[in-house]
Design a protein around this nucleic acid. Sequence first.
DNA 1: ACCCAGGTGGCCC
DNA 2: GGGCCACATGGG
Length: 218
Amino acid sequence: MLKPLEVYQILLDRFGPRGWWPADTPFEVMVGAILTQRTAWRNTEKAIQNLKDLELLAPSLAFVDLAAIERAIRPAGFWKEKARRLQAFAQYLMRNYGGDLDKFFARDVTTIREELLALPGVGNETADSILLYAGDKPVFVVDAYTQRLCARFGLTKEGGYNGIQRFFAANLPKSTEIYKEYHALIVELGKRHCRSTPVCGGCPLVGECEYGRNTERA
DNA sequence: ACCCAGGTGGCCC
DNA sequence: GGGCCACATGGG
């Protein structure tokens, strides 16, 4: 049976460090986390660049005309929803922390997570991405690729977001560096080999487990 | 003309 | 807990 740390080593050897999350500031990570929801990163990049060009990539986004945000982020899709989410987030940061992210992150991880989840459009993955990549907190991020990986290779019987997160946390050193790299590596694997079909040609994990052997052909 | 992308929330059973 | 739907752009 493949173990989390073994999978990590295989992926790291194969793909090398990914250097996630690509962003200049923690606030950019937060905005990117919302913009990239169910959206190709390429499109998220365009939206972020538009915000940068308009000098809108700061908590002061709270005071900007909503229509201007909508226009800027259009390439990222779901622009009406996401513009509202971004502004609500910025308003929250301004109102409660004066837009000071150090203050926002200088508290108990559980507390921050609850506050993030209370915001519109911030679910488990977005909250955890923000905690890990913007706040540098040791929180393992689970995405669709991670769940697919677990299902395909029978890593764990635990199910759902929280179950899978618990599984990785319990079987990995509590290291933000490993968490950051691992999530990025899983996405890289998913992009290359594990889309909608159960066949993973050239997958570095095939042959390491029963599932891989059984589905290698066809 | 399909399919999918670094999800979330609402509603239903 | 699960299944279905809306949200929308851009690339393969």
